[in-house]
Design a protein around this nucleic acid. Structure first.
Lengths: 201, 201
DNA sequence: CAATTATGTTGACAGTGGAAACTTGGAGCC
DNA sequence: GGCTCCAAGTTTCCACTGTCAACATAATTG
């Protein structure tokens, strides 16, 4: 049987739906994403996804999980191997916001608790892996004295500070609260906003 | 005529719809917000808002604008008058995230370009005012050396760094990516994440 | 007082996600 | 082989959404 010949049983509908959802996000944005539109793109009825994902939330969660995997991959792809930690941290952070700017709809979906179920195990795992790429580079970061008692885990505090800063820039840029140049990119690039951290050790 | 007696012409439908929308956001969250639900709460047909706001987007934009005004007020209410700039900056930042944690649905709406029109003049003005409360305290902030040529406005870069950090924390907390304690608040409070800035002058 | 304009209402429409009943194909079992 | 059973899709319906056009009513204005 030819590859793209129609069969009653699709065979790989699950992956096909996720792929169609990712494509649709790029083309039509988050507002253009609907269960029916995804199903139509694959060529199945709008209730077919229910068998595999339970409902729209299940499908969007799977799409978001794939998004997190690509997000992690995008950051790691930018990591220069031999470079010092400062350079590597900078590269990861720029990979983070770069992915968000390149795939704004997908990024919005990934962090939209209204559309995807954060309790989904696959999604949770993918999100944790993605976060770890960035926060893993925060170890031993030289950071101005913090205000609270040192009893609170300094490593954890630094990780959250770093993640907050990077994620905040990405979010604000995507939400349209950042002035953009003629190239569509924020006039103040992330590299100009992120400070030049050093390391303690 | 009694105050709450039904009249064909409501008289203050515009404000009533915005108020109802704000209430609905608190009670039912962003997913529970709909044009029909807001209209029903006011006791008016679901097409009545069109005369005043043009459509759902116009109404949500007005709600978001009011949200930004309250956001600014919440920050300023926390500002200690006589205190030094470091203390004032900290207070404003905590007011920022405090408002987001207290009114997550409204905060999400305020920064959701899919639901409200960022070109709405009233919304733009309110958002700018709110942002200015925070970034106004960033002047002269002592900040580790930045990586880009100093030719780029240092003040602007510091403002964006500060806003990104604060907004990122709020966003991540609301999106459910931050572990919470039994009180529903993030286990790592913002005060523990925000560094203790000094000032140059 | 008459006419016009602002303000709401009614009813219809295309779109959404979800549920129930039905159909189809394949896989396993005797 | 023939049989059953179950997973996978389809069809049909439902409640709900925002928008639109046509209409009704109140308030204002000349």
């Amino acid at each position: 049987m030819a590859e793209n010949e129609k069969k009653y049983h699709h065979g790989a509908l699950k992956q096909a739906l996720v792929a169609a959802g990712l494509d649709l996000l790029e083309e039509a944005g988050l507002e253009g994403l609907s269960l029916r539109a995804i199903a139509a793109r694959v060529g199945v009825s709008h209730t077919a996804p229910k068998n595999h994902f339970g409902g729209l939330t299940g499908l969007t969660s799977a799409i978001a999980a794939e998004g997190f995997r690509r997000h992690a991959a995008a950051m790691q792809a930018q990591l220069p191997d031999g470079a010092d930690r400062r350079t590597r941290l900078r590269a990861a952070a720029e990979g983070y916001v770069g992915f968000a700017l390149d795939h704004p709809a997908l990024f919005q979906l990934m962090f939209s608790p209204l559309m995807c179920d954060l309790d989904d195990p696959d999604l949770r795992a993918a999100a944790a892996t993605s976060r770890a790429v960035l926060t893993g580079l925060a170890e031993g970061l030289d950071w101005p004295a913090l205000a609270l008692p040192v009893a609170m885990d300094r490593q954890l505090r630094t990780e959250w500070m770093l993640w907050s800063m990077v994620h905040g820039y990405a979010t604000l840029a995507i939400a349209g609260h950042m002035p953009r140049g003629s190239d569509g990119r924020p006039v103040l690039p992330f590299a100009a906003v992120m400070p030049d951290f050093g390391y303690l050790a």
